[in-house]
Amino acid sequence: MGTDQRDADIQAVYNHMQVITRRANARSRHLAEPLTFVEHSLLRFIADTPGVRAIDIAEAFSLNRSTVSRQVATLIELGLANYDETDAGRGRVLVLTDHGHQQLATSAQVHREVVTDRLTGWSNAEIASFAAALIRYNDADSK
């Protein structure tokens, strides 16, 4: 494969990733209480990372602390997250509220259903190969 073809393929990957994100955002707007892409991302990270603090989010997402602070304040205002007052030893640990868990589950279910629909007709091997490629792609960021 020549350099020109590789560059064209990389551009195609980038373009299709943008389409995926844009469609996910559009789907979210159809929920009764939609989560923005940022809200969904932060809630997922908090849910998946017990003991996480805002500073940990800033580091993991390579964001400025003040940016994360504003985003966390929005999550708290919306009743989606809160600080765990029982864990004062490690700083201000974030946890999802019941409402946050519910909203994240609803949002994730909508997105999963779309992925399931789009993979209709794909063989198990094709799905496994696609999953492996995405895992490889995402793991490259952590090295």
Rank of each mutant, 00 (worst) to 15 (best):
L80V: 04
T67D: 11
V72N: 07
E85D: 14
R65S: 10
R65K: 15
R92H: 06
N64A: 13
G89S: 08
L78M: 14
E85G: 01
A88L: 11
D87K: 13
T97W: 01
S62G: 13
S66L: 04
R92C: 04
E77Q: 14
R92L: 09
S62W: 02
R90Q: 06
V68P: 10
G91N: 09
A81K: 04
I76C: 02
S66E: 14
F61N: 12
L63S: 12
A88N: 07
L96C: 02
D87P: 01
Q71W: 03
R90C: 02
S69M: 02
E77F: 00
E85S: 10
S66D: 08
F61P: 05
G91I: 09
L96G: 06
V93N: 02
D84G: 06
V72F: 00
E85W: 06
D87H: 11
R90G: 01
L80W: 09
A81I: 03
N82F: 03
T86H: 13
Q71L: 13
I76W: 00
V95I: 15
L96V: 04
A88R: 14
G91Y: 02
L78S: 11
N82P: 00
Y83W: 06
T86K: 05
R92M: 10
V72E: 07
L94N: 13
T67W: 08
A88V: 15
L80Q: 03
S62M: 12
E85C: 00
A81M: 09
V95Q: 06
T86Y: 00
S69P: 07
D87V: 08
S69T: 13
L75Y: 08
H99L: 14
E77V: 04
L94I: 14
T74W: 05
T74S: 11
R92D: 04
T97K: 09
E85N: 10
S69F: 02
D84W: 03
L75I: 11
D87C: 06
D87E: 13
N82D: 12
E85A: 10
E77M: 10
L80S: 01
D87F: 00
Y83F: 15
G79V: 01
G89Q: 12
H99Y: 08
Q71E: 14
D87I: 05
F61Y: 12
D98G: 06
E77G: 02
S66I: 05
T97F: 05
V68Q: 06
L80H: 03
E77Y: 00
R90F: 11
N64D: 15
H99R: 09
V93I: 09
L80N: 01
